[in-house]
Write a protein that binds this DNA or RNA. Sequence first.
DNA 1: AAGCTAATGTCAGTCACTGACAGTTGACAA
DNA 2: TTGTCAACTGTCAGTGACTGACATTAGCTT
Lengths: 227, 227
Amino acid sequence: MTERQATIGSTTGLRELKKQRTRDALLRVALELFTTQGYEHTTVDEIADAVEVSQRTFFRYFASKEEVAFAVQEMVESRFVAELLARPPEEGPFAAMRNAVLGAWNTIGEAIEAVVPVELHMRTYRMIESTPALLAAHLRRSTDLEERIAGIVADREDLDLDTDPRPRVAVAAFTGVMRVAGRLWGQGEDASMESIRTLTELYLDHLGPALAAEWRTPARTPGAHTG
Amino acid sequence: MTERQATIGSTTGLRELKKQRTRDALLRVALELFTTQGYEHTTVDEIADAVEVSQRTFFRYFASKEEVAFAVQEMVESRFVAELLARPPEEGPFAAMRNAVLGAWNTIGEAIEAVVPVELHMRTYRMIESTPALLAAHLRRSTDLEERIAGIVADREDLDLDTDPRPRVAVAAFTGVMRVAGRLWGQGEDASMESIRTLTELYLDHLGPALAAEWRTPARTPGAHTG
DNA sequence: AAGCTAATGTCAGTCACTGACAGTTGACAA
DNA sequence: TTGTCAACTGTCAGTGACTGACATTAGCTT
């Protein structure tokens, strides 16, 4: 056990390169098959066969058939979380979240394109929303992410998530807007990263003013409004 | 194919009675096993064996293992929808929803108890929230129900669901409150129907004022507030 | 080149779920 | 009562997702 690099993947060996290739191939083929034949009408064997690996190998890369469908989402989300953690503490929670998404969109484009065409990702997005099993998974993942973001926001503002409802409320509003923007992007024609960025910005700007008010002060009693 | 009664189940024959018994037994046993051993550690065979029917028969009563877990929820929800449809049109959307739940809680108690002990239903509720696969299903079901309610509300108020966001917003707020009440009930000690009714009422009364304002008037432009 | 080990393949097995077909049993009429 | 029909149920075989165990292959290291 010699020295290892801590950064994401790749110790630059041939091994890691092949692994990357296999994973990418599985992902691309899976999404392609899902979006053309439908998720339920695509078997894991089909995917594995197309990439010429065993089914067992597929499950070594992805814990489940479901997980492949969300692989790109996962990339985007973790990028967002990283950006959020990096925002300067002076920023209010809403500004931080807003800048984190926009920052994420700036850099994630190439990362996605390196793995799958953005257009394929958009088709995948549509498929997720129209496949009950995947929609369920999507909703669960969303609440998980919300909880994670709420925790980060609470940390930033030094609030207690258990007693102060404001982090969760703000995050819920924020992710709600994000979901609307995402859905609109999926329904639209423009598959570019530009368009999703623009949409996000537009929608978030509608929400901002309502949340800008007094933070870092004790919560009001229930029923009192801050807007 | 002779004359049939259109009402729920039971043509009072021995046949229907046996069917009811089998279904109830499967449901009760399933929930009991789920809540004691955990959902994933319970196989359909176990359930079927305990009731002394074949696995195939289980699947004739319930489309999936998942469906059993939500059988009681299903009862409550359809009861709520029925009550909502029966509310007089003079009531505003919020009042109608509120009265529908409270009305539903008044009558659903016995219906539940006739099938499973309320206490078992409460344990089931907790289990659903703590089992990822079931939580996902729960969220999806919730959004389905929300959509259904939004449609009813839009109808009542003669609004277009596609262009007017208010029905969905109101329903989202309403179901959000309901979810909080439900979760609290699940976490609490008191497994009675009384307590869920009281909780519901308490929480809804906090929300009411904010939604009481001018309905049946054209929607404002985005950004304008009504509170 | 030899040895270590990560990556992969193979195989057997579990579990959810389904279609097909056969046996059983209430319901209803003669 | 008895016979017939239709509804229930059981059995069986098969598919597909997923897992553990073990053998095999192929980079990496010295």
